[in-house]
Simulated scan of single mutants.
Amino acid sequence: MRVRGLLERAVAEGVVPGLAFGLVRRGGEAFTLHLGLAQRVPEPEALTPRHLFDLASLTKPLFTLKEVLKAVEEGLLDLDDPLSQHLPELLWLKDHPLKGVSLRALLAHTSGLPAWEALYALGEGEALKQRLLQHPWPLGEPTYSDIGYMLLGLVLERVRGRPLAAFPLPQGFSFRPPRELAVATEACPWRGRVLKGEVHDENAYALGGAAGHAGLFGTLEGVLGELRAILEGTWLSPAAMEEMLRPHGDRLLSWERKRPGWWGGSLASERAFGHTGFTGVAVLVEPERGYAWALLTNAVHPTRHRPSLHPLRRAVGNSVAAEVGP
């Protein structure tokens, strides 16, 4: 594929230390490619198909969205349930609009919750979960929100009666990957070490390593398996898939839709959707054209202070769209 040249150049020019790229077609074969390094420092380590990437915010659609919709299918949740129905201790001394925010609004990032806060500086573990529940979060204009997905993670733990790290996962995924098979991320100033096999996101780490917004690790093969299931309509029930694909502004539930200047490229179809993650990962699904691709990188290794990956992602998206065709 012509995309190979783009990716080989990105590694050779140091845009990313290493990458895994894969393309799947509905009912067809997959194309995969692994290039560069799983780790630059302290010693170079070649990237292999067995390596698991820190999927960062891909946790939101590939884990949290899927698990919420599975719980809806089983009658444990409804998308229009207010948050307080499942977290009754939420702001228990205050009459706050957050209590009435629906699970749907959290999934679609329409709740008005803030995007992010340095919660990891306030505590860890169960104490931090209680801080998350008792903080009087301000509600403003709708924005992409990690906070909303942290709360969804707590809802899932409550209805399943187990921590997120104990949820069963498809083959190729883990919340606790073996260190020797994990792709390195940042030389973290806060933790004082190169992160390998532990989640890069500080808030997810403080919450125990697995959270609704981040914490999932995956191989390229595992991610492509999920994308193929989405393409073929077997990821969830037909009713749940239909609900997932219902537009909510410039988003679906969890997923981003194509819009002007989108990272997925201008040649993506109008029904294309996808998601990115801070560590340097991205997936894109073309339901009408019948293909999907994943680009997994360790762009934050050894530092997060690097140029945007949007130009590379746009180039990949346009190259694939042009070659695969309508």
Rank of each mutant, 00 (worst) to 15 (best):
G5D: 13
G140Q: 13
R9C: 04
R26T: 14
V320G: 06
F21G: 09
E232C: 01
G100L: 02
P61Q: 04
R306M: 07
L58T: 00
S145H: 14
T59I: 04
F167L: 11
P177I: 07
E141T: 12
P260C: 06
L216T: 05
Y144C: 12
R246C: 11
F278W: 15
V281H: 03
L69P: 04
R313T: 03
L19K: 08
K94P: 00
L224M: 04
E323I: 12
E141K: 14
L151P: 06
A322D: 13
F53Q: 05
K66Q: 08
L139E: 14
G317I: 09
V199T: 10
R271T: 15
A115K: 06
E226W: 01
M1Y: 05
T32L: 09
G265R: 10
P42R: 10
D81R: 02
D201V: 04
N298H: 03
R25G: 11
P247E: 13
A211V: 02
E226D: 03
L76T: 12
A315T: 08
W137V: 14
L181R: 13
D54R: 04
H275W: 07
L107P: 01
G197W: 07
L52R: 12
A322H: 11
A322K: 14
T64N: 06
Y149R: 10
R158T: 14
P97E: 02
G14P: 01
E8L: 01
F273D: 07
A38N: 01
A294T: 05
S319M: 10
L91C: 03
L220W: 04
V72F: 08
H305S: 15
S111I: 01
E286Y: 00
E270Q: 15
L47S: 05
A321L: 10
P326S: 15
A184N: 09
L224I: 02
L252W: 11
L267T: 14
W262T: 12
M150D: 09
S84N: 07
V285N: 02
G233L: 00
G172C: 09
V16F: 09
S308T: 06
L309Y: 07
A315K: 10
I230M: 07
L58K: 04
G277H: 09
G264L: 15
H275Y: 08
L164I: 11
Y144S: 11
E286P: 00
T48I: 06
E13S: 10
P142M: 12
E157A: 06
D250T: 13
A56Q: 06
A282M: 12
A56K: 01
G153Q: 04
V199W: 03
F175S: 10
L107I: 02
G222W: 01
G123F: 11
L47P: 06
G172I: 06
E242L: 05
A105N: 03
T276R: 11
D80T: 07
A38L: 06
D80Q: 12
P114M: 04
P238T: 05
L154P: 08
A315R: 12
Q171W: 11
L154M: 13
P168K: 09
E74Q: 15
E323G: 11
T59F: 04
R40T: 12
L236E: 00
E221P: 00
A282P: 00
L252Q: 13
S111Y: 02
G265E: 13
L119T: 00
P42S: 08
L7V: 03
A20N: 08
P178Q: 15
E73G: 07
L83R: 07
H109T: 02
